[in-house]
Nucleic acid binder design. Structure first.
Lengths: 360, 360
DNA sequence: TTGTATGCGTTATCAA
DNA sequence: TTGATAACGCATACAA
């Protein structure tokens, strides 16, 4: 019933010493045929299974890997975790998963907890990896760390896509279609190096093409989740014809908001997202987006970590590929200015256009 | 430094015994002011933190809870896990998360592994809880178990919604709008008690209203993910005017397929989903669905488990509320047909299901 | 081939 | 108020 059966019980039942039982069950040493069967049947009869605790204490390896992501509710991270799990399957390692809810302090707590559990390695996506005490503690302690989603950092290896380059491609495509006034939409811009790098690339390419700097809009949770609020923000912009959303959810939300304003996508506003979540394909107007593979990212991060655990010293892998996924949310702007006959209520005068567009 | 610093190191540094150091750091016993500061500074200087392993071995409690879900890629489960995490926050317990990928065998392996880690409790959503050896092992061992999503089972407590009743409500609404020929769409029907119960409720209410039995369509992964294949299946049906999809993703996918056939939703086909995922609200045609709260479900499951761990013996909580979320995918059928509801050789319902049908 | 004894990090017991 | 020690479950060095 409530009794945990240990190797000692098995040994007693089999009439041998614990060392012998251990050797038999682990196939780690010699044992006569006789005692072998006795031990094995005893183990089976008693329903014995090894205690990971005892093993960990003795071998100073827990065979556990700690994984931290900002949120599991975001399918991008959930998929990455799936990729990690898959890469770990059969390796003997198991995953201890935590999420920080995009909270930098929780981040550090979580890592500290994982370290206290003596995880053998860490796979992390953090809010602020740059100056994390916990990350330093891990390094000090000699616990291998593999990052996901982050751009290359310091002495850490990371599985990532080139956010900067991907964002440049979006700008390039906007430009090629004839868009001139653009906007960049982000949630948690300040706390996400991904968002920042995407904006940086977008901005850089706009400059390179001679476009005005994109309008940068950072949304609050409330604004992102309430189409009416988002619509108001959209309306206050200087009539961009193309908008780059830092992730696909925002891209979908902004479409909803545009609809509230009576704008048609892509006629009145082209939209491109980021991530390439599956649902984007199924929408009435399939979403144009940068397609990445979080699952492969997780897979790569896990493989890198396994390499470290195996004793080798892997090098920083190149960025994972991304691809532009065409979609009906992106098209050429409806008409050449100056006289854009959009019906939507919006305040801009021609003058305010140039003066208002500033980088953020 | 690869050196793990233990309480022994702290004691040596502070010039006291390990017991004293333990008492100070745990505030679990008397200690003179002098030794207290010495221990505390030593611990800080050395960067000491307790080993969860050592603690677990000594106290036979790991302060870890094992959690198994079919997949983290499904936001419904991901949200539930979030709810679990939230309920556990501050309780001192941490989560060991695993997923089975809807594989019944992996299910059992996963639980066995969690038990080997001596988790203090389990929060589970399984493929086949009814006859799981691992689940029995947990019970034998005395490890508290709390289920999520499953309907009440045997001697286990579960956080759930009344799938049967929710599905009846869908049928009732179809009926009230004048629909007569209906269909039920499911993925992994055979391996999901949720799907089965939803069909059972839908079927029962159709009967109760005098409607023909709904057509039951079980999709393969490939069919669910390929609009063309799904369209072919839709076309082969007997012209249902209303379709109940076992989850929101299917409901979205089937809209895409309908569009391929030139059908308009809801004019030619009404669609209702299940789960109430957020994205459904943002779609061009907002999805009518049964809204549930996986997060609250996870929260409840965790609280039930915490009660058990605290030594009380909670009772089975009532089903969590669900609500019908209106959406533009549901409307009255376009026109009445003369042969309404009782002509035409329709594809028979799967007979083997009848054994699963619960009474209303 | 086998069994005994030791140590892993911690806490509880108990004697000082 | 302290500290030495046993115990937890396991693997292993070493002795038999």
């Amino acid at each position: 019933m409530k009794t945990k059966v240990t190797i000692k019980d098995v040994a007693r039942e089999a009439g041998c010493g614990v060392a012998t039982a251990s050797r038999v069950l682990n196939k780690s040493g010699p044992a006569s045929a006789g005692v072998r069967v006795r031990v094995e049947t005893a183990a089976r009869d008693l329903g014995f299974s090894f205690s990971a605790i005892g093993r960990a204490l003795q071998s100073s390896r827990t065979m556990t890997i700690g994984c931290l992501v900002p949120s599991l509710a975001n399918p991008v991270f959930a998929e990455a975790v799936q990729g990690v799990q898959q890469a770990l399957a059969g390796s003997g390692y198991h995953l201890l998963i935590t999420s920080s809810n995009y909270d930098g302090a929780a981040d550090n707590d979580a890592i500290a907890t994982l370290l206290a559990r003596e995880v053998d390695g860490l796979i992390l996506t953090m809010v602020a990896p740059e100056e994390s005490p916990a990350l330093n503690a891990a390094r000090l302690r000699g616990t291998p760390v593999s990052l996901m989603f982050h751009d290359p950092l310091d002495g850490f290896l990371t599985a990532h896509v080139d956010n900067f380059a991907a964002a440049r491609e979006v700008a390039q495509r906007f430009w090629a279609l004839g868009h001139r006034r653009t906007a960049f939409l982000a949630l948690r811009f300040a706390s996400s190096d991904r968002s920042r790098n995407r904006y940086a690339g977008f901005h850089a390419e706009c400059r390179a093409r001679g476009l005005p700097d994109p309008a940068l809009i950072e949304l609050s949770e409330a604004e992102a989740n309430t189409p009416e609020l988002l619509a108001r923000i959209l309306a206050s912009l200087n009539g961009p014809t193309a908008l780059f959303a830092s992730n696909d959810f925002l891209a979908i939300a902004v479409q909803k908001a545009a609809r509230l304003l009576g704008w048609q996508v892509p006629r009145d506003l082209s939209i491109v997202g980021f991530d390439g979540i599956e649902i984007g394909r199924l929408l009435d107007i399939p979403l144009a987006t940068i397609e990445t593979s979080p699952e492969i990212m997780g897979h790569q991060a896990a493989r890198t970590l396994l390499d470290m655990l195996r004793g080798s010293t892997p090098v920083q892998p190149p960025p994972l590929p991304f691809s532009f996924r065409a979609g009906a949310t992106l098209a050429a702007p409806r008409a050449e200015r100056p006289d854009d006959g959009r019906v939507a209520p919006r305040p801009p005068s021609v003058h305010s256009l140039k003066s208002h567009l500033k980088q953020g």
